[in-house]
Design a protein around this nucleic acid. Structure first.
Lengths: 141, 141
DNA sequence: ATAAAACAATACCGATTAAGTATAGTTTAT
DNA sequence: ATAAACTATACTTAATCGGTATTGTTTTAT
């Protein structure tokens, strides 16, 4: 019932990239130091984000990372799922056979959990990095 | 981002107790067998639920468990928090110093996560065991 | 009073996952 | 050709999860 440390780092890294000038590229090391994220761990996380198209990576000298799309087009859910996979709040919502072992016909627990999961998913979808960027600017840093 | 197995078991055990006749007491063994929950693990879970007043335990011969309050007065959140502790979706929402280490003044990530956490908490509060009981009756089992 | 049927408390254990590190390789600007 | 960056994969350590074991307590029936 808690986000991974990696997801927390990912949120902060993507926010950092959101605040750059358009076209600006920064090395992982800069993000790592500014956000207090262990460098090698961050590199791993950035790879997941790159796979999902959330960031774009540039190899070689002068390389680094930049956002892969506009901040407004990246939601917290996008980042969360890039790092942790799909939001699933209970085993019975992953493996459809799970419930059938316990409740042969119909499982009311499953029923409401599915609904809660949907609300949670929507909730993470509600926030994008344009909004976070505004908050950040507004309050300084 | 997922509920404990123990919480899942707890939901099902409390639902089972909700469906009993008023005043009826059942041994852990009966719940265990009916719901496919390892007995000793269930006993541990029931102890947490008893501490929270959700179930009432009776020792000695002829003892067992019954609900500690009306099904309508037990929410999914009550059960979840009895088993796992308070709903906290990120480390920075547990330890207030955590954010300050990283973002010295104001942390927009923290800000929105706090709001999401509140929504999630309300969502688990929305469902009580009277409702689950109705679903269960309606669909048989 | 004592035996047995239940729960209580605590400690332990093995497996999995999370968090982070290491090693070797690839790409690219200079 | 070299060095500065990222890539890929595998490894390691620590924490958590899911479950079990042991010993003790309470209560009812005999």
């Amino acid at each position: 019932m808690i986000l991974n440390q990696a997801t927390d780092y990912a949120f902060r890294a993507v926010l950092y990239l959101s605040l750059l000038q358009p076209g600006e590229i920064v090395e992982a090391k800069v993000i790592s130091e500014s956000q207090n994220i262990p460098l090698r761990f961050l590199l791993k996380i950035l790879r997941s984000l790159a796979k999902a198209g959330i960031v774009k990576s540039y190899q070689g000298v002068g390389g680094g990372y930049a956002l892969g799309k506009k901040p407004a087009d990246i939601t917290l859910r996008d980042v969360l799922e890039a790092v942790e996979g799909p939001i699933r709040i209970n085993k019975c919502l992953i493996d459809p056979d799970y419930c059938n072992k316990q409740a042969t016909t119909y499982c009311p627990v499953h029923h409401v959990l599915a609904s809660i999961q949907q609300t949670i998913t929507q909730e993470f979808d509600k926030y994008n990095f344009e909004q976070l960027k505004e908050y950040a600017k507004q309050y300084g840093k």
